[in-house]
Design a protein around this nucleic acid. Structure first.
Lengths: 161, 161
DNA sequence: CCTTGACTGTTATGATATAACATTAGATAG
DNA sequence: CTATCTAATGTTATATCATAACAGTCAAGG
C-alpha cells in the first residue's frame, strides 16, 4: 500500500490538515476523550496520508517512532479513532482514513479513485436518507451503513482517457 | 461463521430458492456463461444459506463433495459468480451471498441483521442515484458502489427489545 | 491428431485481524 | 504519600482471509 504521487491539490492534504487536527483535538477535549500519543500520531498519519492507510502501514510507522511493534498496537489505535469519530474504516480497501469533519457527527460516503488511490469523504445525508427509506420498506432498522464508491476522481477523469 | 436457526420465513430461503436458481441458469444460458459443476454447487450453497457464507465455509462444503480442497477452488468459483452477476460480495462480513434477482443487472444495497445474521438484498436504485449525484458534485465518476447497512431485520426488531 | 484455451486442481505464501495475557502509567480514595 | 484501581500499552501466539504461481485435464476446432 505505497502512496502514489499527488494527483491534485485537493489530495495533497496540506491545506486543511492542521484544521482537521485541531477540530479533532477540540472534539476530544469536548467529549473528554483521551487522545494519547499513539492515537494522536496515528491520527496525524491518517490526516497526512494521500489515500487510506492499511493497519500494517500505520504499524510500521509507529514502530519506527518507538511505539509498539505488534499488530494490536495499530489496530487498537485505529479502532479507537473509528469508534470515536476521528477516522473511518474503508472496507473495500481494508484500510483507514481520517475523518475530514471530526467536529460533528455525520453520515459519510467514500469516493475511491482507482487511478490515484485517493479517498474522498463526501456528504451523504441524502444517500443515507434514501437508504434508510429503502431499508424501512423492508422493515429493516439501520444502525450504521457503509457507503463506498469506486471510480475516478475529478483530477483523474480529466487526466486519463 | 455458523448459521443460526431461522428467524422468520423470509429468511428460510425455501420459497424462492428454486426460482432464483432457475433465473440464474436462464441468465447463464442467455449470456453463454458456463455454470460448471463447482460454480453451480457454490451458487446453490449461497442460495440455500440463511446469511452470507465465507469463502472457507464454501470451500469446506465443496471439499466434502469431492471438489478441490484448497482456497483458490472456492475463491475462483465465488469471484466468477460475483463478476457475472450471480452473487454479491459482502465486504463488511468478508462473505458472499447469492444475488436474489439474477435475471437482470441492478444496483443493490445489503441489509445485515446483527441479531439473526441474515443478509437481505434491497433495491437500491434511488440510493445509487443519490450517491451518483453526491459524487458528481465532487466531480467524481462512479464505476461501482458498495452499500451495506447493519441493523435489525423486520423479524428481529419485533422479537427483541 | 494435436493445439488451444478455459477450467480445475495443487503447493506455497501473503495479508489482514484478534485472543489472551503481562506490564505500565494516571487517577483517586484513604 | 501511597495503595489501589482502571485505562492504556505492550507482547506472544494464532486465527482468518486471500492470492500468486504453476501442473494437469478436457472439450472444441484446425
Amino acid at each position: 500500500m505505497t502512496q502514489p504521487s499527488f494527483c491534485c491539490p485537493d489530495h495533497s492534504g496540506a491545506q486543511d490538515a492542521a484544521s482537521i487536527l485541531s477540530q479533532a483535538q477540540a472534539r476530544a477535549a469536548r467529549l473528554g476523550l483521551r487522545l494519547t500519543p499513539v492515537r494522536l500520531r496515528t491520527l496525524e498519519m491518517l490526516i497526512a496520508a494521500h489515500g487510506a492507510l492499511g493497519a500494517y502501514d500505520v504499524l510500521e510507522k509507529l514502530a519506527a517512532e518507538g511505539f509498539g511493534t505488534q499488530p494490536p498496537v495499530a489496530y487498537r489505535a485505529l479502532n479507537w479513532l473509528v469508534e470515536h469519530g476521528f477516522a473511518h474504516r474503508i472496507r473495500r480497501l481494508n484500510a483507514f482514513t481520517a475523518c475530514s469533519h471530526p467536529a460533528h457527527d455525520h453520515a459519510a460516503a467514500f469516493l475511491i479513485c482507482t487511478a490515484c488511490d485517493s479517498v474522498t469523504e463526501a456528504p451523504a445525508a441524502e444517500v443515507t436518507a434514501a437508504l434508510t427509506d429503502a431499508a424501512g420498506q423492508a422493515g429493516f432498522a439501520i444502525d450504521r451503513a457503509t457507503i463506498e464508491a469506486v471510480g475516478r476522481c475529478h483530477a483523474c477523469t480529466g487526466a486519463a482517457a
